[in-house]
Amino acid sequence: EFSMMFKHFDKDKSGRLNHQEFKSCLRSLGYDLPMVEEGEPDPEFEAILDTVDPNRDGHVSLQEYMAFMISRE
């Protein structure tokens, strides 16, 4: 189920989600993330990124995504 969600939000089929795609994916899974303006701080989402994209390369791989989802179950 999680990998299907990942593929759905991987719009460019790159095998990874940019942070915006990842945020959309989390919202569709029921995460209550506040709407913030582009460039505004988003501490809740930043905290999630610290876990799922610790190297802050700007992308979430399928492996990082799956590890995050399994840790939340």
Results as ranks from 00 to 15, higher is better:
H59D: 09
A67D: 14
L49H: 00
F2C: 07
G58V: 00
R27W: 08
T51K: 14
E46Q: 09
D10C: 04
Y65K: 02
E40P: 07
P34F: 07
E38Q: 13
D32V: 10
L26D: 01
L17C: 03
V60M: 00
F45W: 12
E73F: 13
A47H: 09
Y65T: 05
V52A: 05
F9L: 09
D50N: 12
S71T: 07
R27C: 09
D53Y: 00
V52L: 06
S71D: 15
M66Y: 04
G58Y: 00
E64H: 08
T51P: 00
V52M: 04
H59M: 10
D42H: 05
F9Y: 06
V52Y: 03
P54F: 06
S61N: 09
E44D: 14
F22A: 02
H19Y: 14
K13V: 05
D42K: 01
M35P: 13
E44K: 14
I48F: 04
E46W: 05
L26V: 05
H19F: 02
N18P: 05
G58H: 01
G39D: 12
K11T: 08
D42R: 01
I48M: 07
K11P: 04
L49Q: 02
L33M: 09
M4T: 15
M5R: 15
H59V: 11
R72T: 09
L33Y: 07
H19G: 00
M69C: 13
S28F: 12
P54G: 05
A47V: 10
A67V: 06
R27Y: 08
S24A: 06
R72W: 07
A47D: 11
P54A: 09
E44M: 10
V52C: 11
E46Y: 03
M35F: 10
Y31I: 15
N55E: 11
M66V: 08
G30F: 02
G39F: 07
R27E: 09
E40D: 13
E1W: 10
G30S: 05
R27P: 01
E21S: 07
L29P: 00
A47F: 07
P41Q: 13
E40F: 09
F68E: 02
L33A: 05
L33I: 13
F68W: 11
P43M: 09
